[in-house]
Design a protein around this nucleic acid. Sequence first.
DNA 1: CAGAGGATAAGCT
DNA 2: GCTTATCCTCTGT
Length: 207
Amino acid sequence: MTFLNNPMLTTEEVAQKLIGCLLISQHGETQTSGWIVETEAYVGVVDEACHSFEGKRTPRIESMYKEAGTLYVYQMHTHKMLNVVTRSSKEPEAVLIRAIEPYEGVSVLEDRRNKTGVQATDGPGKLTKAMAVSMADNGSVADAPPVYIDPSTRRLPERIELSSRIGIPNKGQWTDALLRYSVRGNPYVSRRKGKPADNNGWCPVLD
DNA sequence: CAGAGGATAAGCT
DNA sequence: GCTTATCCTCTGT
């Protein structure tokens, strides 16, 4: 049991704990990875922005009703979106992974995207393309290959910034709710402005 | 650097 | 048809 599949944790807690974890992708001999720097919590049947709002259940959403620690992948326009199911209080909830800071296989990530630098992984649709996430990953477990999260390999951010979720207009309190988490000052966070923080916003490594 | 608009596909009414 | 948890390009400052 890790925080990934512990149904006692709230979705907000999981979204925060995912910041700094390593997201890994293995396809054949190719391994790529990156540190999670931005997430959003979608808090289930009461959340107008959540796919399971009011208990909606269709084939597309079915993965949200599986156990905590399941990957929920869906397609939006031409892009895949990667989520981790939480089942906080048994409800169908999830965390959207919105951006990563590349770690292993940087040139592979950039080639898959045909972009270099921050543009390779600074958005939810961008990171899935860079990490080769596909609809085949929908419903699989989040702690084993080909696409998985290593909860033991974790960097600590100096500060986690809370903000409202992106792309949720006209949803009342849910438009403004502070359910987006990001590493303050990290250049890979989507839609951010200003100059990067020292050490990209991470605490110094102690050794 | 900010804002506008179009691409493009699946799900829903 | 309309909407959408996006991305990219183009325009104007």
